[in-house]
Design a protein around this nucleic acid. Structure first.
Lengths: 203, 203
DNA sequence: GTGGGGAGTGAAACGTGTTTCATTTTCCAC
DNA sequence: GTGGAAAATGAAACACGTTTCACTCCCCAC
């Protein structure tokens, strides 16, 4: 995965040649294919693993801010900058995650779970969600909904950035616009009714 | 594009073999590469063209419903079903759109523009946005923001569906959850302040 | 120590995306 | 009709993802 990441940073998705990955990693091609089922598999696994590092980082230095919006601002700035700093790698990873190959499904799911947790943690202003800690409560339905939506907007906006539709700034802006609207909606009275209906439909 | 679509319907992205596309289209491989710069180019162009058809369809039979939410419900059900009905084609097209290849950028942009227009039209309950018609007004900032966000959530949710994370129903559900929250936020008083801040920052 | 099995190896092979290029066909202005 | 340019052709070549397979190496239970 390290080799794949550095090759992707150099020249993007096409530059991650399986023969090169194997050679630089000091293994044979067949061995590489024993560990990873495809190129997309490597890159999506790499993203998942890097998100683990992000979890640790956010735990030691949580997003700071007076309120949820400010903390989300901080969080999405951090993660977006982290990706956009290595544009070719970011594009390669987005491509792998959106490839729809069945072997990446587990990585996509794992990544999604991690990011949702991180977003909720940022909204709450804690380092991470500790389910064992008596002082913290499990994510509410509303938190999960908002976190999932924000993540989707962030992801889609990154795909737009990757396609050249807009720049890094717009990625954060769009995500924050959504964050403001969604948290605002959550603070309104009428929301309860909407959510009730929603849950009724799901049941 | 027709050939590519039907090959993708049969066997997905990998089944769209350039040699086959050229052969079935009755042209030489070189000729195909004169019209399209890559496989992703064909598929993203095909999606753009199909969205043109969708525009016509929505114009003749606009999304119906009492209010914006109901019409968005109808609209996203239609478009999601339209895609999920051909799962392999849908996955192939998503993959092409998220590939980040520069040659697809224009198709991504065009598609994005069309979909935004369609979403706004659905919110308003009209067949299409006619800028020349004296009875209709240009999209407001708020409409464009909400439409873009809904589209992003829909797209990201489709990618999740493509990866096998969830089913067709969740795609529509997630989009509609967002639609409810966002339009709810727009109907609240405090919204104005948030939007003011937003525009200030953009200026 | 040894036998066996699992992991790793390396090289070849295959399919397919993409490029190249010399040749042929088409088509239009004259 | 004809000359010539533009487009199309077709075949070969190249690159790279992926698979296959016979062989080697390592390790460990016996």
């Amino acid at each position: 995965m390290d080799v794949a990441i550095s090759l992707a940073e150099e020249g993007g998705f096409e530059n991650v040649r399986q023969r090169d990955v194997a050679a630089h990693a000091g293994v044979a091609l067949g061995t590489l294919y024993k560990s990873f089922r495809s190129k997309e598999d490597i890159l999506s696994a790499a993203l998942d693993r890097e998100t683990e590092n992000l979890e640790r980082r956010m735990e030691s230095r949580p997003a700071r801010g007076e309120n949820a919006i400010e903390r989300l601002d901080s969080f999405f700035n951090i993660v977006t900058r982290g990706l956009v700093r290595k544009p070719k790698y970011a594009r390669a990873v987005l491509r792998a995650m959106a490839s729809g190959e069945p072997e990446v499904a587990s990585h996509v799911a794992a990544y999604h779970g991690r990011m949702t947790g991180l977003i909720i943690a940022a909204m709450r202003g804690v380092g991470r969600l500790s389910y064992t800690d008596a002082t913290s409560s499990p994510p509410t339905e509303a938190e999960q909904t908002v976190a999932a939506l924000l993540q989707q907007i962030w992801f889609a906006s990154l795909v737009g950035w990757s396609a050249g539709l807009h720049g890094q700034q717009e990625v954060v802006e769009q995500t924050l616009t959504a964050a403001k609207l969604l948290t605002h909606a959550l603070s309104c009275d009428k929301l309860d009714r909407a959510m009730e209906k929603l849950e009724k439909k799901r049941a």
